Amino acid sequence: MKCLRKKALKFMVEVIREEEKKLRSCRRTSGLLIVDKPAGWTSHDIVAKLRRHLGVRKIGHAGTLDPDATGLLPLCVGQAARITEYLMDIPKAYRVRLKFGEETDTDDASGRVIRKTEISGITEEQVRSALNLFSGEIQQVPPLFSAVRKHGRRLYEYARKGEDVCREPRAVTIYEIREVECRLPEISFWVRCSRGTYMRSLCRDIGRVMGMSAHMSRLRRTESASFTEKDAHPLSEITAMNPDDVTALLVPMDVPLSHFIPVVVRSDRIQKIRYGQPLDQEDLAGMPDSWQTGRLCRLYGEDGDFLSIGRLDRSPSGVPNVHPKKVFCQDEKIALLDSSDMLKSNRQKE
């Protein structure tokens, strides 16, 4: 009997060591890789290329860029792929170039010209006055060649078959337009905007309010998911690196979530996170300064490990608590801790 117990313990030790290796590998290959996308690549092409290069299946991106566009494309690698939805809501910024005189079916330079107008007589003052109209919340009709869904199909699917379809305007927000340069027939400007804002539509609509045709002739994304151009790495640089060295470029997944409230969980209570159980005040090492029900938070262990995304809430009796929403690699760590405790207990019994 004692011999069987020793064999069982030995087997469990081997299992735990194997799981520890997986956990270390998970940590090494999880994070955000900020790519400076070159022109001529789709966002999907970039993801597929780096999946092969890194040997990692789970990679997603935090917002599509058109093939001709360049700039920031944050990639969520490994466990970080699960935070993509939270990054999409962070405002983005672009450097845009607009050309007056021609409107295209794609609203950018790659499309077929469908309308031309004369542009003589345009002044810089008129341009700036038109730009001022696009401030705050506006209604915007997405381009026909876009990934917006209509009746279960992408708009570009209708466009490729030559089918026109009614596109309802959507509310988007332009937070800021600045750095305007007029070199007619083109102008350029920098814009910060909300999720779902199409720069192609913005250029088209600027032309229309001025009574002329216009399209977007160049686009570069300068900010995304709280990152800027200085954080980005050229695709050619990444693919020239040894895959193991690329992990040094990964940004911890909690960095772009800094707008979530940080909450520290006591070491002996992190098991509750694994099972999705709400955390009460006694489970926390400290309480946030302000408790706003419904607000998202970052849950950390006392050792600084990022454990989960949670939501501040209250019990039916009004007592503050935290509900785990997404648990990351560290849930394996919790399981390992449980198994290690069990091994110690069995050894003590012997």
Rank of each mutant, 00 (worst) to 15 (best):
residue 291 W to G: 00
residue 84 T to Y: 03
residue 319 V to N: 12
residue 179 E to W: 02
residue 305 D to P: 01
residue 36 D to L: 08
residue 252 P to W: 00
residue 112 R to I: 15
residue 249 L to W: 12
residue 142 P to L: 00
residue 328 F to Q: 13
residue 21 K to C: 04
residue 280 D to W: 14
residue 238 I to E: 00
residue 219 L to E: 04
residue 310 G to R: 02
residue 286 G to M: 08
residue 135 S to N: 12
residue 318 G to L: 06
residue 46 I to V: 15
residue 194 S to Y: 04
residue 75 L to P: 03
residue 117 T to K: 06
residue 46 I to K: 06
residue 115 R to Y: 12
residue 75 L to A: 03
residue 203 C to H: 05
residue 220 R to H: 05
residue 282 E to W: 08
residue 280 D to P: 00
residue 320 P to E: 00
residue 192 R to W: 06
residue 126 Q to P: 07
residue 220 R to L: 03
residue 238 I to S: 03
residue 224 S to Y: 04
residue 147 A to R: 03
residue 125 E to D: 14
residue 57 R to K: 13
residue 285 A to Q: 06
residue 316 P to I: 01
residue 125 E to F: 11
residue 23 L to N: 08
residue 22 K to T: 13
residue 42 T to C: 11
residue 278 P to A: 12
residue 92 K to I: 11
residue 320 P to T: 00
residue 322 V to L: 07
residue 100 F to L: 08
residue 22 K to L: 13
residue 322 V to C: 07
residue 31 G to E: 04
residue 151 H to P: 05
residue 92 K to F: 08
residue 177 I to K: 01
residue 249 L to R: 10
residue 346 N to K: 13
residue 35 V to K: 05
residue 101 G to I: 00
residue 297 C to T: 15
residue 106 T to D: 12
residue 347 R to D: 09
residue 310 G to Y: 04
residue 329 C to I: 10
residue 314 R to A: 06
residue 319 V to D: 12
residue 344 K to Q: 15
residue 319 V to Y: 09
residue 186 E to G: 01
residue 305 D to M: 06
residue 214 A to S: 09
residue 346 N to H: 15
residue 221 R to W: 12
residue 191 V to L: 08
residue 258 S to R: 03
residue 303 D to G: 08
residue 20 E to M: 03
residue 270 I to T: 09
residue 229 E to P: 01
residue 227 F to W: 11
residue 279 L to N: 08
residue 223 E to W: 07
residue 110 S to Y: 11
residue 154 R to A: 06
residue 234 P to T: 14
